[in-house]
Write a protein that binds this DNA or RNA. Structure first.
Lengths: 261, 261
DNA sequence: AAAGAGCGTACCGCTGAGTGGAACGCAACC
DNA sequence: GGTTGCGTTCCACTCAGCGGTACGCTCTTT
């Protein structure tokens, strides 16, 4: 009866006392940037006894979630396969791909597809060409909401309680231009709802500009996802792509609504 | 010292006796096509006691690997995120994306990136537009090697022992045109090595044609991955895209070799 | 060349986390 | 109103998991 996609309160589970907890602690010890970690490093990060990490990691290798290399452990292809079976994300990705392609072809800049998860953006897809701006975003990665166009537009269409939660929470300053004043940010959110797009001007990464538009859920108010186009300061004019991004997002929204959202 | 990416003999681990084994049995019970499975169905597929599935699934929900919905369980976004941290696959994907984009733009047909895993192809990326042929391939999914262009070209550059293993193994007939004669297949592999491309003519799915080229590893002999272009019978002429696919694959290979393979 | 630091691996006896058979409540469907 | 299939809860047993300890190795450092 009750659907509860995310834990209420008390943050993420930090369970070191069950096998599963230990296994996940090890898997999650791999940051987005790490490729291969030695046993000792895993011990340090997980804060578990060395013998335990050794054993559990061995089990994980046996189960194809980790690879053993000469220099340590690495998240394996088995995990990649498993992750891409996640229903919601994969369906969204598949339905969105044609629209993202169109958008890329029109702009030839980096195109993102993201969803809101908690108080952060999770990138479902990132496509770009050779000239793409070097953005810190990565498929499957996370970014704060307040300093990205994608995040702002997702937050803007997420309901009042989400607004206040984020606006009252700490707004980390990522660059000199990050908007950390709640009032200012609220204004931008309001504007985003009115205009159907949100912008980012070097707020998460110096040298980067971005426009994003919401993919509205069938109810027409909340955002199921969002699409953005990112480019470097200089050649890139976000405003000139606003319409294209908005069109792509709207079209995707219509498709989502058609096929059992 | 010893690197052992895949289990020797005795197939995949089917460990129902450890917590981890049970957890993975549950996660892997989700086929590529399933989105939400009720408890009873999980019990059926995993062949574990009902009480056990109930408890372990509950733990998995707590750890954000499963979502609980009104109609059952679903692989969650947490798993998606985790899977996309898998180093090898992700790096490959990121480096390849620009080349795949170029190829798509040139052909406007479905473009695939795949690697060999055991005796199957695993799709790392699939990009396509609105007019794309309806292929059964999915990102993160698997297909047999002998009936896909991607598979053939990967096998062709995988060493003699791999050839014999596949050629001697059962060659499943997927369509009337699937090549199930070992001799014929061996000829195609030899040709693929000579010409640098492999073709598929409605061998995995009726109505689909495909060309693939290998992304050679720095050693110049084995394939690190492969790229393909797929289109429908009728408008699509595989031969006319052979050069484009080969060029994309070669270029990606060079990039891979440059950046710490 | 000896001492030290840091690594991965192996051993092994204790114990409570994990186990799963059994029983329950609830909707549907004959 | 009986039956079937579902999700959930209970609880006593036991063996899987635990982790302190110790070992062997390869590098630096002195």
């Amino acid at each position: 009866m009750e659907v509860r996609p995310e834990e209420r309160g008390e943050g993420p589970v930090r369970d070191r006392d069950t096998v599963l907890g230990k296994a996940l602690a090890i898997l999650r010890a791999f940051g987005p940037a790490d490729s291969v970690l030695p046993l000792a490093e895993l011990v340090r990060r997980t804060d578990l006894p060395k013998a335990t990490v050794h054993r559990v990691a061995g089990d994980l290798v046996r189960h194809r979630l980790l690879d053993r290399t000469a220099h340590g452990y690495r998240l394996s292809g088995g995990l990649f396969e498993l992750g891409l079976r996640a229903a919601a994300e994969r369906t969204l990705l598949e339905l969105a791909m044609p629209f993202l392609q169109d958008l890329y072809e029109r702009t030839h800049e980096t195109v993102h597809l993201g969803v809101r998860e908690g108080h952060e953006v999770v990138y479902i897809a990132k496509i770009g060409g050779h000239r793409q701006a070097r953005a810190p975003s990565r498929t499957g990665g996370r970014m704060p909401m307040h300093c990205t166009a994608l995040g702002k537009v997702l937050l803007a269409h997420a309901g009042e309680e989400e607004w206040t939660a984020v606006l009252n929470g700490p707004l980390e300053r990522r660059t000199p231009r990050t908007v950390v004043a709640p009032g200012l940010l609220r204004g931008q959110l309001t504007r985003a709802v009115e205009t159907g797009v949100a912008y980012e001007v070097e707020e998460s990464t110096p040298g980067l500009l971005c426009v994003a538009a919401p993919v509205l859920a069938p109810d027409g108010r909340t955002a199921a996802a969002a699409i953005s186009v990112t480019g470097p300061v200089g050649r890139f004019r976000p405003e000139s792509h606003a319409n294209a991004v908005r069109a792509a997002a709207t079209a995707l929204g219509a498709t989502l609504a058609r096929r059992g959202h």
